[in-house]
Amino acid sequence: MRGGSSPVLAFAGLSGGYGETIVLQDIEGQVASGQILGVVGRNGVGKTTLARLLTGEIPVESGVIHLKDADVTLEGLWRRRERGLGYAPQERSVFDPLTVADNLSLTGVDMGRKHSRELLDSFPKLTERMHQLAGTLSGGERKILSFVRVLLEPTRVIVLDEPSEGVQQENIDLMIQHLRQAKESGRTIVIIEQNISLLESVADKIIGLDHGQMVLSADRSELSRTDLLGVLEI
């Protein structure tokens, strides 16, 4: 618990998977307000499963999850969203048959607000395609749309699963800017990423996963780039 502030999102002894198959075992971590927790690991080590467990997309096998002092372990996706947990999944991250505008208007956010407007306008590719169906966007554009949607939503905690996958560098840089702003405004973020430089620029804490186990957990300041790359090369 850095800086004495109590964690907004905390989980311990977390295990889970799909049906009989347990993918993740005994994962723990905590993030406070204004902090970003990065999760690294190779493909198929259970990163997305962690996102799904944290957001309630799949049920927890064992362990506990606390969200702002409430035990949400047994709660579903929608209930956690009501408590202020936003989620941008890795796959199927946008509503394909809806226009870009409709994807964003779902959240009920007033797009006239200055902050919302600025966020959207910073991605001209998106604003150009406001009335195009989201299903027709490229992979990177979908990721941007998903990223913008989840930031626009009035949530205090956000789980992002591979937000930079397929996104061009200039837009990744923009994402980094927005993530820093979100941090400053006190939001709590979990980012699952393979893009080490993105994590280095924004994360306060890092968890490393391999074969369903936690192999690394430390403050960003304590870790070198080699440590991080090491997790990806185990």
Binding site: E57, R92, F95, P97, L106, G108
Partner: peptide, 25 residues
């Protein structure tokens, strides 16, 4: 209408709809 958009969203992607705050049940 917003309701129609939410219905379409739920039909297209129920998981994401819940994650976006739509009470699909």
């Amino acid at each position: 209408s917003l309701t129609a958009t939410r219905i379409k969203a739920m039909v297209a992607n129920p998981v994401l709809a819940q994650a976006a705050g739509i009470k699909t049940a």
